[in-house]
Design a protein around this nucleic acid. Structure first.
Length: 569
RNA sequence: GGCGGUGUAGCUCAGUUGGUUAGAGCAGCGGAAUCAUAAUCCGCGUGUCCGGGGUUCAAGUCCCUGCACCGCCA
């Protein structure tokens, strides 16, 4: 049995994600996980919330809550939304878990043993009023170059000049507005990625079948300019994983935590440990090549912007540890989804957010549209007209109406059971032939994680059913040859079950409704189309399901377009 | 400023290593059918493949250049 480990980039804890975030990682990962399970793979599908860092602290402060409490609440919110979208994680973890604390500290210790950690002093801005060091972008002041008054410590938004916080005139804390700032000496750990450059280079060269996008981004970072830079892996914050060398204190690093980019990817592993702790499962056979993970295929999903972390930073941690950790075999990077002529914007409230989406339509509508329009090759545009058109046509008309016309016709002519009379002829043989070809194409596309093309192929499979029905015309044959009509409808009813099985990765709820309507739990992936279309035997009873997909009306569309427009600039 | 991406039918997008009349879905137009959520099925595309040069027997596909939009700059 093939074993597939799947991770989705972990969403930041700070707030509810929009549909662009969803389709950028979690949703395609879920599609693939569901498909692999359907094909009989043993699957471990892990996601989590990314909880550390200054933005989480500030969001908690704004909400008037301790950061741990805030994160716990937001984790639950994100978990519920993931459930609402039917994201089938085996475990949805938290990067703040004690499992991740332990593993992150373990990796730091191993990297230090391998001579890959440096302690370096630097001078950073400290806010006396806030009682903390301030990251560059949390300091604002007047730009020395152009005089812009709200320049940030890393860059002036007005003249785009790159700045150092100490360049700013009249610097102030973004957090409190305090101007009581001073520059203090502080010490941090650096991961000497530069020493790993050759190993990473070789490792990337040894990868088979990575998308060129991923390889080229990785190579660019590896070779451009001065090559791969060492990176600070600690911060002067309270909220995070305390810096320790394995389970021992790290002298001189008291009160400091690991930087979020260091501990976040480790949560992929720690999340699996969380799963194991909760279920009694064995996480090492997924992650340690010396303990059974050698035959695991590891597939990562992420947004384009996350590629360097997954191709370089995280592998640097894994390879640098000197331990036999499983590294990624294939990675799927997605582009961005735009909203109606602009970007989705969390800060401006522009676009549709996960909670809002579920409040107006069931998950399957969104899953279908987002996946069938997934931004694989380039950025993609969401418009309400396109959404309404695609969903109404594909789901309501092509698929939903097929189920409706078949079951209702059968009920009125033969009753609510699979009719027994008649034999299949050449039309049915031709249909089986067509479906066999298309099924193979669909499988190949799903295996290759070509999401849009797979969706198009699935739709073509639905269309084939309507074509068959149109040609067979059981409503006409019923008049002269009821037995023939019975055979045709027996085929059509079986198509519904067949479609439910194939469609399930995309639209799990509708698929379940179709199976429930057909009163069957036989949902094995078809290996032989002819046999798969004989599963519902003569006499098998069914019920006419409720309308699977109600159409989106023009009024709804206009209302939603208005509601989610947000503030344009 | 540097780097990268994108620009193909009204809309959303495909177009392998350059090779016959540039494709799909939707929308639109015409027809068939009437079982069905006024759904389905069939037929219909004279598109400056962003502009301009160039390489080639042959370029949407390679090179140069201009324009537009969009990202990234640790």
């Amino acid at each position: 049995m093939p074993r597939t480990l799947i991770t989705s980039a972990i969403p930041y804890i700070n707030g509810i994600k929009h549909l662009g975030n969803l389709v950028g990682s979690q949703l395609p990962a879920d599609l693939y996980a569901r498909y692999c399970r359907a094909r009989g793979h043993e699957v471990m599908f892990i996601c989590a919330t990314d909880e550390h860092g200054t933005p989480a602290e500030l969001a908690a402060a704004k909400a008037g809550k301790p950061v741990a409490e805030y994160c716990a609440e937001m984790w639950q919110v994100q978990k519920d939304l993931a459930d609402g979208f039917r994201l089938s994680f085996d475990h949805f973890g938290r990067s703040s878990s004690h499992q991740n604390h332990k593993l992150t500290q373990h990796f730091a210790g191993k990297l230090d043993e391998a001579g890959l950690i440096d302690e370096r002093s630097s001078r950073q801005v400290y806010s006396v009023a806030d009682g903390r060091f301030l990251p560059d972008r949390y300091i604002e002041g007047t730009c020395p170059n152009c005089g812009f008054e709200d320049a940030r410590g890393d860059q002036c938004d007005n003249c785009t000049k790159q700045l150092d916080p100490t360049d700013l005139i009249n610097p102030r804390s973004v957090i409190s507005g305090s101007t009581d700032l001073e520059v203090r000496e502080t010490k941090h750990l650096y991961l000497k990625q530069s020493l790993l450059k050759d190993r990473l280079d070789q490792w990337i060269d040894s990868q088979q079948g990575w998308p060129v996008l991923a390889t080229s981004i990785a190579k660019k970072w590896l070779h451009d300019g001065d090559g791969l830079q060492d990176r600070g892996i600690t911060r002067d914050l309270d909220w995070g994983i305390p810096v320790m060398k394995g389970d021992k204190p790290w002298p001189g690093m008291e009160g400091k935590v690991f930087y979020v980019w260091f501990d976040a990817p480790i949560e992929y592993i720690a999340g699996t440990v969380e799963w194991a702790d909760a279920t009694g499962g064995d996480w090492e056979r997924w992650w340690r090549t010396d303990k059974g993970a050698r035959d695991v295929r590891y597939v990562q999903f992420m947004g384009k912007d996350n590629v360097p972390f997954h191709t370089l930073s995280f592998p640097a941690t894994l390879l640098g540890s000197g331990e036999p950790w499983k590294t990624v075999d294939y990675l799927k990077a997605l582009n961005y989804l735009n909203y109606d002529g602009g970007q989705f914007s969390t800060s401006r409230g522009r676009g549709v957010f996960m909670d809002q989406a579920l409040s107006i339509l069931p998950a399957d509508y969104w899953r279908w549209w987002l996946l069938s329009h997934a931004p694989e090759n380039s950025d993609t545009e969401f418009t309400w007209e396109n959404f309404q058109g695609s969903v109404n046509k594909d789901l309501a008309d092509v698929l939903g109406n097929f189920v409706s016309r078949v079951t209702k016709f059968c009920r009125s002519k033969f009753g609510e059971e699979v009719p027994a009379d008649g034999e299949w002829g050449t039309a049915e043989a031709a249909l089986i032939e067509t479906l066999s070809t298309r099924l193979k194409a669909y499988e190949a596309l799903m295996d290759g994680i070509e999401i849009r093309k797979a969706a198009a192929e699935l739709r073509a499979i639905w269309v084939a059913g309507n074509e068959y029905l149109q040609e067979a015309a059981p409503w006409a044959t019923f008049k002269e040859d009821p037995a023939k009509a019975a055979a045709q409808i027996r085929m059509a009813l079986n198509l519904i079950r067949f479609y439910a099985v194939l469609s399930r990765p995309f639209i799990p709820d509708a698929a379940d409704a179709m199976l429930a309507g057909m009163r069957t739990e036989q949902d094995t992936w078809p290996s032989d189309v002819d046999a798969a279309l004989r599963v519902l035997e003569p006499g098998h009873d069914f019920t006419v399901p409720d309308v699977l997909f109600a159409k989106i009306t023009d009024e709804q569309r206009e209302d939603w377009a208005e509601r989610f427009a947000g503030t344009r600039d």
